[in-house]
Structure formats: structure tokens, C-alpha cells
Design a protein around this nucleic acid. Sequence first.
DNA 1: CGATACTCCGTACAGTGTTCGAGTACAGGA
DNA 2: TCCTGTACTCGAACACTGTACGGAGTATCG
Lengths: 252, 252
Amino acid sequence: MGTDGDERVVLDLLWNGLGRPQRGPRHQLTVEQLVDAAMHAADEEGVRALSMRRVAARLGVGAATLYTYVPHRAALLALMADTMIGRIPLPHTRPGSWRERTEAWAAEEMAGFREHPWLVEIDDSRFVGPHAFAWTDSAIRVFDGTGLDGDAALTVVQAVSGHVRGHVPLVIAEDRAQAWTDPDGRSWGSAQEAFLATHRPEPGRFPGIETLREPPTAVDTFEAGLGWLLDGVELRIAHSLEIRRGSPKFDI
Amino acid sequence: MGTDGDERVVLDLLWNGLGRPQRGPRHQLTVEQLVDAAMHAADEEGVRALSMRRVAARLGVGAATLYTYVPHRAALLALMADTMIGRIPLPHTRPGSWRERTEAWAAEEMAGFREHPWLVEIDDSRFVGPHAFAWTDSAIRVFDGTGLDGDAALTVVQAVSGHVRGHVPLVIAEDRAQAWTDPDGRSWGSAQEAFLATHRPEPGRFPGIETLREPPTAVDTFEAGLGWLLDGVELRIAHSLEIRRGSPKFDI
DNA sequence: CGATACTCCGTACAGTGTTCGAGTACAGGA
DNA sequence: TCCTGTACTCGAACACTGTACGGAGTATCG
């Protein structure tokens, strides 16, 4: 199955945590402390500072010590990601229609990524932890009563989640650009604007772009795109309800 | 504007290339050769092999030599990405309706990412090269005659492109998992399946997931999501046409 | 009471991107 | 024509990185 069984070890750590050692001295720290330190390092000093040595220094231990808690850096990252997911509220516990709830969790997911940009780099679909699992489970249940079966609900959930993730890098880049320049924010990421202002391409070369008046921001396109996507889902749900009404025997 | 003017240098390199030096010896290689070597290294040996030293070795030159062609690694990556984009056909030159053409370029974009997985890691929206620019321009023009103005067309283009990019990591992970296991492919990425088979969570803990029968693959969700997204766009276009017909004066 | 299995961690290895400076090749000006 | 100044080339070095090894100390089992 997975590479060489190494993934099992990481998944075991994610799901069951680190067992107390049978023999020898006990651990000085907990995995939670380790993950917490790593998350703070990433938040405060950026992804670049997320090195084993730096995290170890934060905890006042040697770098090699971390490897008795976690098999490798990738495992630490997986733990960070799953911990982060565990901090956002479960979608199905929110009030409102499926659409309101989906819009809410999509916005929350985007907000989480913007607040902790390291999540983008960290995210690895090979390691699905218990929190990610529970989150997905909850998101599926948002569609209870819509006529969609589980498989279809999961399709919607992953489609929307994929949509969010696709727009995250652009939104983050925009956030960073905005933080650098005086706030008269345009899209095209500031540096491009400045560059194109001096190196303006000859007229007629890019006729499509010349029709732009007020280019949408990354947040605009994300929200518009999400709206369209959910419009499409709405059609799909209406369609499946119609089929249901047509033949009431077919209850799946 | 951008960080410290460094981005201008990269953009200048992307748009204008490397000028011949006025005085002193000429360059032994071309930037194109350098980028080509880097792309081959990434394709053949994986992203891990994409180090300056390895690329230099491929070209039979010293590592430090590369820095007379390119200010830093990030610039090389930007050149690789823009070169890659230059190799896919321009959207507006395809036949068919806006929807057919959009589906075509979305599929092509996805195929490109699957064929060259390093593109995901490389992609940096700060550095928009001439090919990316031309591509965006072309994509905007796909919506000529739909009633959408340039800004709205760009919104659609970026929404769809973001959607594609969001699904790329999942599809690639699936590709890799499929390459490892015997081909009876399920979703959940093989390692999870194997893990959950042994560590099955207690019934009732994940009721949503228990309703799954045949979980959708990443490709399934991508395609379904794209369909819904375009359904929503179709509604939007129909709506704007209606408004147009209603008040023909309002030509924006 | 060993023996054993474990944590902790200094050290080391093989790598990374990038800088420095010596050596050298080349073009323009005198 | 020579000279000057510029620029490419590239070995060596710097400050890092993730991780393996092995020794020292320690808590528990037989």
C-alpha cells in the first residue's frame, strides 16, 4: 500500500497519539506541546522558521529529542494540520439551510488559511487525522435531508473544499501585497501593476486585458466562484428532489 | 511596492529576457537552456532534484554560474512556470461555445499539472510572465459575445482556474497512490483505507461517512465541481443577457 | 539486582541556496 | 595596438537544513 508502511506510523500517531514507553524514562514533553510550539513558530516567524532545530530551541530541548516524539518533520506537519482543523467548529452543528451552512464553513476555512498561511504549505492529503475525518463526516451530514446520498454529499463537500483551497494562495498573496503597499489595493499583485506601468505592452497585443476596468480582487473571485458553484449544486439538488417525487419508491 | 524591488528584476527577466552583456565575455548558455534543463530535472528526477547544483551539473557548469543567468532559485522557478504555460494552446483559439472552450482549457490545465506535478509547488502568483499574461488575455476573450464585460469574464476565468488548482493536489496524490498499489483504486488514498481497515472506528462515531457506498475519486469531484461551477456561470450569463434585453441602453 | 528498553542530546553527514573572490576572457576607447 | 574595465566562470565557504548514530543516564520488568 502506501510507500513503505511509514505512513501507517504517522496515521497511528495521528489517531492514537504517542503511547507511554513501557521501559525507561518517561517523556519530558507531550506531543501537544511540541505541536503547539511548532504552530506558534509558524505563526510568529513564518514558515521559514519551521525547522526542527528552531522548534526544539523554543521548547528548550535538543533537536534530536524531537525524533522521539515524531518520526520526521512531515509527521509534525500532519499533526499541526489536523490540530488546526480540530479548532474550527463542525459544519453540521451550525444553524441554517445546507447552503448557508456550506457558505459558513467555506468562509471559515478560507479565514483559517488566511490567518495561518503555513497551512497551505503543510496540507498533505496522505495524512488524514481524526479531526479531518470528523470534519468531513460533519460536512457530509450538512446535506442530510437534501435528497443527496452520502457519496453525492461527499462529492459536493470535496468540490467546495477544493474550490476554497484553490483560491487560498491568491488571496494570501493579495493579503501580503496589501500589507506592503499603501492601501489603495488593486489586483494583479502590486508588483505587476508597478511593472506594467513602466513596461506597458503595445496596444492591441492583449485586447482582452485592455477591456478591464476594475479588475476583481482574489477575494471577489473566490466569493463569486463559490456562489456559482453553489448555484450549480442547488440545481443538482432540485433535480434529485424532482426525480424523487417522480418515483417515490426510489428512496436512495 | 513589492518587497524590495527584487520582484522588478524577476519580472524584467520574464518579460525581456537576459540582455547580452555590453563588455566582457558572453554567456556560454542561454536562459532557455537553463530553464529546459531545470524542467527536465523536475520531470525525470522529481521536485527534490530541482536544486541549483543538480541543474548546473546537468549543464556541465558550476553551480555558481547559474547566478549570472538568474538572480535566485525563485526566478528560475518562475521562468519554468511561465515556459510551461506557453506550451498549452490559447483558450480563445479553440472551437465551440464558451462552455465547451472553458471545459477544454480547464481539462488541459489539469492535465498539465498531472503531467508535471512540480508545477503545483512552483506556481507563484507574484511573478506573472508574458505567457501567463497572454493566456489570461486569451481566456478573457473566450467570453466575447456572452454579454459579460471584461471584469466579469476575468472573474469567471480566475474562479475556474482557482477551482482547477484546488483539485490538483488531490488528483496528483491519487495518481501517486494508484501508481503504488495494484489497480483496484478507491479514494481515501490507499494508506488511509489500509489503516482504517485495521483501526476501524467504533460504529456511530462517524455516521456521515458510514453512509458512503462508493466514495468519489478526486477526478470525479473535480469534474462534478467544474460542472456545477459552470452551471452557475451559465445562470449568470443568462441573467445578464436578460437584463440587456430588458434595457438595451445599459450596455455595460 | 541485573538486563533491557527507553529518553535525551552532542555530534556528524549529506545536502541546500547563496556569496565571495580569484582567474580569465572579451569589447570599447585611446 | 594596447589598455582598461567589465563581466562570466566557478572552487570554496557560510549558514542553514533534516536526520542517523551512539553514548549517557534512567525507569521498569523479570
